[in-house]
Write a protein that binds this DNA or RNA. Structure first.
Lengths: 341, 341
DNA sequence: TTGTAGGCGTTATCAG
DNA sequence: CTGATAACGCCTACAA
C-alpha cells in the first residue's frame, strides 16, 4: 500500500484544506473568502473566518504564486542596496507596500544595463506582481516591452504606457535654484562639479546651472566646470584641480552632496574656510548634510517620498486603478556653507 | 543548429517538461540532472543540457519551493533597510549569496522584538531556506527554538546550538583601543557618549572605556559620561550638556561615528576647534568618517565583511557543513580629529 | 451560492 | 539508471 505524504503529516502545516475541513466547507469556498473573488453566504463566511483564526492559518505565498495568483511581492531594482541616496527610498517603498501586505524583493543592478536585465529575469522567475525600477539603465523600449506582462513603476525618467508609470524629479529647476542662490548672494564666478554624464539627473542639473548663469547675464566659463561621478573622492579631485588651475572663483556648486563633501575636504586641506573663503552648495539634501561642518546648503530631493509614491502608484496599478502622484518641486535648503563672497 | 524564435516561444513558459520532451527523456531525469540528485547516463545528460541551452530554460524557483521545500532564498532580518552602518553588510550578504544562486529577502524589524517575530513569520511563510538576523532583539531561547527548523546566523551576540551560528565583534577591545589612543596622546579627562543601553554593543564599548581608564590609573568620573542613542542628534545634545556642565575635559569618545558627527557639530557651534581645542574619536569607521572635517579617528568595524561572513556561514550550514569564520579584531584608525591636548 | 476537478512547475517515491 | 505517479498548497474554470 502506498503511503501518501498527507497521511504522514496529518498535523503538519496549517493548510487551506484543513481550514475547509474544520469549517465544513470546500477549499474553493475558503479561497473565495480569502480573495474576495466571489460572494459567499454570511454563515459560511463566519465559519471559515473562525476556523482561520482558530488554526492560525496563513496562506502560503509560494503555493499562491504557483497557482497563478499573486505572490504579494514586488521586485525592486536598485543600483546598490547601500546607496546613501536611495536608502530612504527603499524604506519608503517597504513601509508603503507593507500597509497593503506586499513585500519588496530588493536586487542590485550596479549601474549596469546587462546586470539590470538579469535582475529583472530573476524577479520575474520569482513571480513578482510588479516591478519598481530606480533609475534603471534599460532602454525605454525594453521597459515598455516588459510592462506588457508586468506593471512597472520607474523613477528618473518620464515615460508613459499601459502598465507603466514614471516618477521624475525636476533636476533642471533644482540646478537653477542652487545657482540662483549663489548668484543672489553676490557670486559671479561659480564653479560646477558635474556628475556622471550617463546619468540624466546629472546633465539636467548642469543644464540648470548654465541656464541660471545665462539668465543672470554671467558668461559660462568651461574652465570652471569639472567632471565627477557622484562619489566623494571625485569631489576632492575636482576641487583640487579647480584650485590648482589658478582660476578665480568664490563658490562651488556640486551636482550632488557626496561630491560636495569631497569638495569641502579639499578646501579644508587647502586651508580655505567655508563659507568665508568659499561658498559651497550641494544637491540631494542627504540626512548627513545637516551634520557636516558647516551644515551644508543644498537642494532638497525627496528620497523617502519617492519610495512612498512609487509604491503607492504600484499598488494603484495592481488594484486596476490609474496610478497618480508626482514628486514635489525642488526646494533650496540654505544653511551655513553659502554666504556672500 | 540555429535557435528559432518559434522554438523558444512555443507556447508559454519554458518548463522542465518541455526540456524533457525535447531531450526525449522523462521530467524526473531532467530534475536529477538539474539537482545532481542521482547519477544519469552521459548520453542523456548531454541531450538534456543541449535542450536546456537551446530553450533557454530556467527553473522556476516558485515551483521548486512548493515541491521541494527549497526556495534558494535567505531571509535577512535587519533593523532598518537604510541603516548607515548595515548598508555595507547587506551588500556583503547579497554578493556572497549571489555566488551560490541564493537571493536575500530583506525585512526591517525597527529595533522591536515583537516586530522582529512578525518579520520572521513572514519570512517563514515565504519558505526561506535560512535566516540571517542582524543584531536582533529576540531572546536566545526564541532563536534556539526556531533554529530547530530553520538554520540561523545571528550577529551581535555569542550563542551556539545546532543550526545556529553567531558572529560577534569585540566591542570591548574596540572601546579599549579608542580610549587608549586618547590616553597615549596625553588626555586625562576624556568624556564618553554612550549608546542605547539596550544595545549590547554599546555597553561593551562603555566597559572598554572604563577598563582602559582604570588600566592607566585614571579615575572614572561619571560626570563625563552622557547618554545617547546612536543617532547624530543625541551626539549634539550630549556634547551640549557636557560643555554646559562646566566640567573640564580635552577629549570626547563617542560610542559610534554618528554621535561623533553630532558632537563635532556641537563643538563647531561652540566655536571649539577639532583637534586643537578638543579631540574626538568615534566608532564604526563609516565610509563618511573619512570625508568629514577633519577626517575622524575611529575604530574600524568590518561591516561589509560581517555580511560576507554571515552569508558564507549560512551557505555552509545549508551544505551540511559546520559553519566557520569570525570577525577580524578591532583596529584603531587614527586620523586628524585626535591630537595632543 | 457552492463543490468538484484539473492544473501551476518541480521534486520525491517507488517500481522497474 | 530511468520513468510513472503522487504530492506541494492554492486558484479557477466548470458544473450543479
Amino acid at each position: 500500500m502506498k503511503i501518501k505524504r498527507s497521511d504522514i503529516e496529518k498535523s503538519g502545516p496549517v493548510t487551506l484544506e484543513r481550514v475547509a475541513d474544520l469549517a465544513g466547507v470546500s477549499p474553493s469556498t475558503v479561497s473565495r473568502i480569502l480573495n474576495g473573488s466571489a460572494v459567499v453566504s454570511t454563515a459560511k463566511k463566519k465559519a471559515v473566518e473562525d476556523a482561520i483564526a482558530h488554526l492560525g492559518f496563513v496562506p502560503n505565498p509560494v503555493a499562491r504564486g504557483l497557482a497563478g495568483g499573486r505572490t504579494l511581492s514586488i521586485g525592486v531594482v536598485t543600483q546598490a542596496i547601500d546607496s546613501p541616496f536611495y536608502g530612504p527610498t527603499l524604506r519608503g517603498i517597504e513601509e508603503e507596500l507593507d500597509t497593503a501586505g506586499y513585500s519588496p524583493l530588493f536586487v542590485s543592478a550596479h549601474w549596469d544595463a546587462a546586470s539590470e536585465a538579469r535582475c529583472i529575469d530573476v524577479l520575474r522567475s520569482r513571480r513578482v506582481d510588479g516591478l519598481i525600477v530606480l533609475h534603471g539603465r534599460l532602454s525605454d523600449q525594453a521597459l515598455k516591452n516588459t510592462s506588457k506582462n508586468l506593471p512597472i513603476v520607474i523613477t528618473g525618467r518620464s515615460i508613459k504606457g499601459p502598465g507603466l508609470f514614471s516618477l521624475n524629479f525636476d533636476n533642471f529647476t533644482g540646478g537653477v535654484l542652487a545657482t540662483e542662490h549663489l548668484i543672489k548672494l553676490g557670486h559671479r564666478r561659480i564653479a560646477f562639479i558635474k556628475g556622471d554624464p550617463l546619468h540624466p539627473d546629472a546633465t539636467e542639473r548642469f543644464r540648470g546651472y548654465k541656464s541660471a548663469l545665462q539668465a543672470a547675464g554671467i558668461a559660462f566659463d568651461s574652465r570652471l566646470v569639472m567632471s565627477g561621478d557622484y562619489q566623494e573622492i571625485t569631489g576632492v579631485q575636482a576641487t583640487n584641480h579647480l584650485l590648482d588651475s589658478g582660476q578665480k572663483f568664490t563658490a562651488i556648486f556640486a551636482a550632488n552632496d557626496q561630491m560636495a563633501f569631497g569638495a569641502a575636504l579639499s578646501l579644508h586641506q587647502h586651508s580655505l574656510r567655508i563659507p568665508e573663503d568659499m561658498s559651497l552648495v550641494g544637491f540631494d539634501n542627504l540626512a548627513r548634510s545637516l551634520y557636516v561642518i558647516p551644515p551644508m546648503s543644498t537642494v532638497n530631493q525627496p528620497a523617502y517620498e519617492l519610495g512612498q509614491l512609487a509604491a503607492t502608484a504600484m499598488l494603484q496599478m495592481l488594484a486596476g486603478k490609474k496610478p497618480t502622484g508626482s514628486l514635489p518641486a525642488p526646494q533650496l535648503i540654505a544653511r551655513d556653507s553659502s554666504a556672500r563672497p
